[in-house]
Each structure stands twice: as C-alpha cells, then as structure tokens.
Computed example of a mutant assay.
Amino acid sequence: MKIEFSPFPNSKHDPFLVTSPKTAHYNCIAWAFGDDTKWYWPDSAKYYFWPTEIPREEKIESFIELFKLIGYKVCENEDLEPEYLKVAIYSDEFGKPTHAARQLNNGYWTSKLGQHFDVTHTIFSMKDGSYGNVAIFLKKRI
C-alpha cells in the first residue's frame, strides 16, 4: 500500500510502501541487521539489546562496529551492486544516529519506522525527513 507519511515529505514523490503490520517487537537497527526479534539500541540504561563488545554510545562509530560484526564494511554510495548487501545509517544534523535501512535486491530499501510498520522506499523518499539523512553506507559480500 502506497502512503504519504508526513515525517518524510519526499514520500509523496517517490515509492513509500507499507510492507508489514505495526509492531514494537523490533526497531530499524534490528531490521537492517536482519533480526526481527528484539530492539537494538546502545542506550546507557541497558534496556535494549546491544552487543557487549561494542561501546554503548549513540555514535555512528558504534553502529558501524555493530554491522562489522556480521561482515559489513564502509562503502562509498547506495548504488545497487548485485554481489553485495548494503545498509544505510542515518543521522540528525548533529551527527547522532537515528535510523538504519537495508537495501533490497531490486535497489529499493526497507526500513522499520520505530514502533510502526516496515516500509519499502528509495533513499530520496526518506531524505530530509524526521530521521535526517544518510550518514554512511556499508556493504558486505553475499
């Protein structure tokens, strides 16, 4: 189902499709990581899941380290490369991580919107939205 989601103003111009029912069982970081069983976040209260070997800090570097655990490395762009899986990590204007998305094999991206639903979208449809913009791309060989 195509929607226009007000926190993402470009969603009215580019694909933004709901692909799951609402759930609070997992978040965008877990979804991009490939886990739909828990909420990932490096909160200091240790309420959410975060690997013990990675600093529990809300910094891009911590999120890069998370994805390195499963073979990702930093890459240059969002271009579809059929032999790779890609992840985009978003941040706000202050550089604080806010969101992650995973690239699908058709070049579109999939995201979990907080406690809401999963969506399929383009990088442009999320641009300048409530999660800010992509801070870094990562990829791993399939």
Rank of each mutant, 00 (worst) to 15 (best):
86 K>P: 02
3 I>H: 09
127 K>W: 07
134 V>N: 12
87 V>P: 01
21 P>K: 11
62 S>A: 10
69 L>A: 02
12 K>P: 05
47 Y>Q: 13
125 S>W: 04
81 E>R: 13
78 E>C: 08
15 P>D: 09
127 K>D: 08
69 L>C: 03
7 P>C: 09
45 A>Y: 11
92 D>V: 10
90 Y>R: 08
55 P>W: 12
50 W>P: 01
101 A>N: 12
47 Y>D: 11
85 L>T: 04
62 S>H: 10
136 I>C: 10
12 K>M: 07
128 D>F: 11
46 K>D: 07
12 K>I: 14
72 Y>D: 01
132 G>V: 09
59 K>Y: 08
16 F>A: 12
82 P>T: 11
126 M>W: 10
116 H>D: 10
136 I>W: 04
104 L>I: 06
45 A>G: 13
71 G>T: 02
97 P>V: 04
84 Y>N: 14
62 S>D: 04
142 I>C: 09
138 L>I: 02
94 F>Q: 15
40 Y>Q: 02
46 K>H: 07
48 Y>H: 09
109 W>G: 05
40 Y>G: 00
79 D>P: 01
6 S>F: 12
99 H>V: 14
32 A>F: 03
38 K>H: 12
33 F>M: 00
126 M>P: 05
73 K>G: 14
25 H>M: 11
81 E>A: 14
142 I>K: 14
118 D>P: 01
110 T>I: 08
105 N>R: 10
112 K>N: 01
91 S>T: 07
51 P>S: 04
97 P>M: 10
69 L>D: 00
142 I>V: 12
20 S>V: 11
104 L>D: 07
1 M>V: 08
2 K>E: 14
64 I>G: 05
114 G>L: 05
135 A>L: 04
42 P>Q: 07
109 W>E: 01
130 S>A: 11
4 E>G: 07
103 Q>T: 03
59 K>V: 15
92 D>M: 13
81 E>N: 12
80 L>C: 15
41 W>L: 02
37 T>L: 00
129 G>E: 08
4 E>N: 15
112 K>Y: 03
57 E>W: 03
127 K>P: 00
53 E>F: 01
56 R>F: 02
129 G>F: 05
85 L>K: 12
79 D>G: 05
99 H>W: 13
62 S>N: 08
92 D>L: 13
54 I>E: 01
116 H>K: 08
61 E>F: 08
84 Y>V: 02
97 P>H: 08
89 I>T: 02
88 A>R: 03
111 S>Y: 03
109 W>M: 04
24 A>C: 06
42 P>H: 06
48 Y>C: 11
5 F>Y: 15
40 Y>E: 02
73 K>P: 04
139 K>T: 05
119 V>G: 03
49 F>C: 00
62 S>W: 05
80 L>D: 05
30 A>D: 03
6 S>Y: 08
40 Y>W: 04
